[in-house]
Nucleic acid binder design. Sequence first.
DNA 1: TTGACAGATCAAGAATTCTTGTTATGATGA
DNA 2: TCATCATAACAAGAATTCTTGATCTGTCAA
Lengths: 106, 106
Amino acid sequence: MTTTIKRRDKGVRLFHALSDDTRLEIMERLKEGEQCVCDLTDALKTGQSRLSFHLKVLKDAGLIKDRPEGRWIYYSLHEEALEQLEEVVRSLRGTGHRGGSSSRCG
Amino acid sequence: MTTTIKRRDKGVRLFHALSDDTRLEIMERLKEGEQCVCDLTDALKTGQSRLSFHLKVLKDAGLIKDRPEGRWIYYSLHEEALEQLEEVVRSLRGTGHRGGSSSRCG
DNA sequence: TTGACAGATCAAGAATTCTTGTTATGATGA
DNA sequence: TCATCATAACAAGAATTCTTGATCTGTCAA
């Protein structure tokens, strides 16, 4: 089924982008809201080039987006991709799991 | 906060394990239920050694578990890890997302 | 203009991950 | 016991990813 393969492909890209400590830390910072690269450089105490590399990985995977403003570039989470990620993860659960322990609403 | 770092660490391991096409395909096959390595070798049309490598990655990450029986070893999904994964993914969403479009219950 | 700053991009080496072939282990059955 | 089967584990090369330092681009302010 082509749909399955496409979702798998999407999954591989999303999971790969998130499979790194620095990148997960970036994601965590961005939960607080938009940040420019300089904020992140300070926060993560890392080189500009290295940070730029990881931001690109996240951006290529669609997980974050950028908004240039003057000489700064602000990054923020891309909620849509996070929803897709949730869907991919949900699709990993065994077929008969309706009512799993952690996602109840009542 | 140590909890955050631990969760991130767990996340890195889970995401890494899932960041590969072969491994995601294994996960998909296991959704159907327990399978022995020979079943998977057939299904994925790949070498035994290669498959064994990827099964180990998934197992080390806690995503699957094995059950030896005679000379076969049966693999299956480890639901607990999938729940942890869902939690990690949920924790990636921005703080103010209550009411996101895809996870409503009503 | 010119200089300084924010970031991206590139190049090369380091580190990690993956593949393939081979060997080791443990169960089974003759 | 011996041969065979299912699978793990290892070793070495291939491929990919990451890091670091250098350079390029665009923006601003003097």
